[in-house]
Design a protein around this nucleic acid. Sequence first.
DNA 1: TTATCACATTACCACATTATCACATTATTT
DNA 2: AAATAATGTGATAATGTGGTAATGTGATAA
Lengths: 225, 225
Amino acid sequence: MQEFILIIDDEVQIRRLLEITLSANGYKISEASTGKEGIALAATHQPALIILDLGLPDTDGQEILKKLREWYQKPIIVLSVRNSEDDIVRALDNGANDYLTKPFRTGELLARIRVAIRHNQDISENPVIVSGALIIDLANHTARKNDELLKLTSTEFSLLALLAKNEGRVLTHQFILKEVWGLAYVEQTQYLRVFIAQLRKKIEDDPAKPKILNTESGIGYRFGY
Amino acid sequence: MQEFILIIDDEVQIRRLLEITLSANGYKISEASTGKEGIALAATHQPALIILDLGLPDTDGQEILKKLREWYQKPIIVLSVRNSEDDIVRALDNGANDYLTKPFRTGELLARIRVAIRHNQDISENPVIVSGALIIDLANHTARKNDELLKLTSTEFSLLALLAKNEGRVLTHQFILKEVWGLAYVEQTQYLRVFIAQLRKKIEDDPAKPKILNTESGIGYRFGY
DNA sequence: TTATCACATTACCACATTATCACATTATTT
DNA sequence: AAATAATGTGATAATGTGGTAATGTGATAA
């Protein structure tokens, strides 16, 4: 899976610089120029890391940081022109993983991004997910229920696998669509409904009363719990 | 539990400064003035964090870093007079968690130590608010009471989360409306009454005698206390 | 070619959620 | 205690969201 970085900065030049540098190093990018937009994008895109400029026009950067940290656990690297110890300490104590003052050196930023992501990556991937009577084999792209092989199409399988990998967690429509269909499809929530329905027919005892693939109305879907 | 920090630095003044600052902040200290000594102490004392000066007399600091990282997983913060990008990137890629150039500001160092230690503790744990039998998982948009999942709509959830995040504090009607419904709705106090009632039905033992979602007549609502 | 399959797309219906209102109840003030 | 203000409650309307079936499309294989 490609690492996905969200840049929240109002300066176009900085965004362009970061965009070029980061994509040249194999990261995917999304950008926001205001705090509000940034929070919205973070919620829908679930980036692996956020680069946050403290000097945004709409809101105090420290407040955005706090808001993000209410639910966002992955690394946040703060950029700022401000170099006062107070700003730095506050940002770090508000949940930032690192703090760089502008102008920054791109090589150093990249190294600090690697540090931040490296830390977050030691969650080992389990090739087989077992949940009740369901057994999902990620490596073989097969799923079984009560020991009988389910006939799943590849889209159905990746959808099921994605949800199962995040058992108990609510995944937003946008996130699922992005992961399974790709970035261009984040608006097509109806695809998702169709495929959820198909999966339920195949794996639920009573598709009308799903116990495995649960709906979180207005938000997304959840596997189990 | 007392946090234990190992300082590897050959300059006596720096060691003394760190010793005073860190112990004043509740950390226990051990010190080494050479790389060899440092590695030995790290092995015997198992510190929660290491502060490593790159400019040691006996060995190249980067080499000590690599040696430590062969077995030592906890945070290492590098100090150095050298400010070249190359040094910084190398240190970070060799496994340092952070890099500060001398002279450093003690408040910033302390904040970065907190970041490093904080990081090492809460790997993959969700931010949850626990209040009595209620457990609110902000990242997952789920809430439980006595271990059973509550069926909350997204508006109900954000209202509950907002109040719970401010446990014990009175939030005014206007503030709550602004946060949950948006600025245009600060006058619609009736929305709030309706949704508070719905939440109470779902989470209070006796909705008529609320113990969790309390009314502050004429002002707003309060979670708990 | 036809048949088949998976996915895309649409239309429609059902249900869940939210908004709104009228009225009951409770709290506060005089 | 009475008057007034504030809050709670239940019903219903309006809207939003999700589920399902049917159909279109394009690829692939018989």
